[in-house]
Amino acid sequence: MFKSLILILGLVGSLMLTFVLPVQASEDVNGLSDYPLGAGDLISIQVFGEEELSVEVRLSDAGTVSYPFLGELRVRDLNTGELSKLIRDQLADGYLVNPSVNVTVKEYRQFFIHGQVEKPGGYPYQPGLTLQKAVALAEGFTERASSSKFLVAREGASEAEAEKAELQTLIYPGDVITIDESFF
């Protein structure tokens, strides 16, 4: 009986590793575990056992959120772990004893694509997004699109600071993609 119990626990542990590790690895590969929050992100703040302190809120243009008891918090450029710690520390300072806070990104801010695509505009970011996938979301290239002149301006960079890109270039929230016109 004892050997059967150990075997079952071993199988359950093995299955957990199979399903948990790939998800964590994919977040690390895309660099989203250190993802800096920015204007337009929709986040969920959960405080275990405190429903009135659990909210979903979108970051303002100033990179702030309004949070119960604590007021307006500047959270731009913090990652979810840093924001969890900030809220936990402030709630523990006179409001709650040892609060458990979890912050997750529910919806990333948009990326933008313009130039020679069928439907230019802003689109919801998806982890693992490449320039090729972004073009597909914009319903493909126009007939006049260049097959090699792509530029990506990272969030906060000017158009003059845009970098040359390839179809496999990773795109991040807030990026602006330009698809140039072909001259022949």
Rank of each mutant, 00 (worst) to 15 (best):
L86R: 08
V75Q: 00
Y125L: 05
L70A: 05
Y95F: 10
A134N: 02
Y108D: 05
T169Y: 02
P120L: 03
Y108G: 04
T130D: 03
Y35G: 01
T80F: 10
A165C: 05
A157N: 15
R58K: 14
E155D: 12
K85T: 12
K106V: 10
T169M: 01
E166T: 14
P124F: 09
R88W: 08
E143W: 08
A134P: 01
S158H: 09
Q110N: 15
L37T: 03
R154N: 04
P124L: 08
Y95K: 07
S66T: 09
T130L: 02
G115Q: 06
K164N: 14
E56D: 14
P124C: 04
G81C: 06
Q90L: 02
D89C: 09
T80D: 05
G140D: 05
G49V: 05
G115C: 07
Y125T: 04
E82H: 07
A134V: 07
E50A: 15
Y67W: 09
D61P: 15
L167P: 04
A134D: 01
G156R: 02
K133S: 09
E161A: 13
A92V: 06
L78V: 01
K106I: 11
A62R: 11
K85E: 10
A62P: 08
E155K: 15
F69E: 09
D41P: 05
F112A: 11
A39C: 08
L59Y: 03
A145I: 02
N102K: 13
G38A: 10
E139F: 12
L70Q: 07
L53R: 00
L53S: 03
Q116I: 02
V152N: 02
A165V: 03
L86Q: 11
Q46V: 15
S44V: 09
L91K: 04
L151H: 11
R76Y: 06
V101L: 12
E56N: 14
S84P: 05
I45W: 12
Q116R: 11
S148V: 12
L37R: 08
L73G: 04
L170N: 14
E72G: 00
L96E: 07
H114E: 11
N79T: 03
R88E: 06
N98I: 09
E51H: 11
V103S: 04
L59R: 00
P68L: 09
V55P: 01
F112S: 13
Y95P: 00
Y125F: 11
H114V: 13
R74H: 14
G140S: 08
Q116F: 01
L83N: 04
L170S: 15
E161P: 03
V97L: 14
A92Y: 07
V152I: 13
D93T: 07
G49D: 07
K119Q: 10
E155G: 13
L78N: 06
Y67E: 03
A162Y: 07
V117C: 07
A62Y: 06
P99G: 07
I87M: 04
V55I: 15
D41L: 04
F48S: 12
Y35H: 10
D61W: 00
I87P: 03
E143H: 14
R58S: 10
Q168D: 14
Y108T: 04
S66K: 13
R109Y: 05
A134T: 02
A39L: 03
Q116K: 13
P99R: 06
L59E: 02
V65Y: 00
G122F: 05
S84C: 05
L129E: 06
R109V: 03
S147V: 09
T130E: 01
E50V: 10
V75E: 01
G81W: 10
E166N: 13
G122C: 08
V135N: 00
